[in-house]
């Protein structure tokens, strides 16, 4: 009951100005921790956006977060993916590595192992693009650090249920 777990919520909201501020404001006002949060429009016809938010807390806190999200007027649907069975999540990472000589070559080799793509290169730098779970991205960053990592940019996770079930009817 008092174990702290990480849960991933998918939140379908009306795509109106200020909705993200309401979602984020609820977390700060009630002192809940956000691990990551992403948002983008996903249904142009119905003007809906999807927020993916990863949070940590006890069972009581996780339940409360769900109920508090549902209270926000422009929120259409809140799903705790951890309670809905199996889901996949992915995050996009961009890493800039500044290196010469052997370290430059080594960074390319590590990128290859992780199936990261080079999306920008100069004489002294690469920008790598990698998608995967947060853990995979963490591991990649760790390996790149001694090789000249100078900058990181990540999107935060997006997630979706496995199988045929959809959150909203089409």
């Amino acid at each position: 009951m008092n174990d702290i777990n990480t849960h991933t919520f998918s939140v379908i909201v009306d795509n109106k100005s200020g909705v993200l501020a309401r979602v984020v404001g609820m977390f700060s006002a009630r002192g809940y921790n956000i691990e990551s949060l992403t948002v983008a429009e996903v249904d142009e016809d119905r003007n809906l956006s999807r927020v993916t938010v990863m949070v940590t807390g006890t069972t009581m806190v996780i339940e409360q977060i769900k109920a508090q999200l549902e209270r926000i007027v422009p929120v259409r649907k809140v799903v705790d993916l951890n309670n809905e069975g199996s889901f996949v999540n992915r995050e996009l990472l961009l890493v800039k590595v500044k290196a010469k000589g052997e370290r430059r070559v080594e960074s390319l080799r590590v990128a290859d192992i992780f199936r990261a793509r080079v999306i920008d290169s100069s004489n002294q730098s690469f920008v790598f693009e990698l998608t995967g779970s947060a853990k995979k991205l963490d591991a990649f960053i760790k390996l790149m650090q001694p090789l000249g990592l100078v900058e990181v940019s990540r999107t935060g996770a997006v997630a979706i249920l496995r199988g045929e079930k959809a959150l909203l009817k089409r």
Binding site: Q64, A67, Q68, E70, R71
Partner: peptide, 11 residues
Amino acid sequence: IDPSSINKNVK
């Protein structure tokens, strides 16, 4: 009437 009142402070 408010689901967030359930289990907020007391189980």
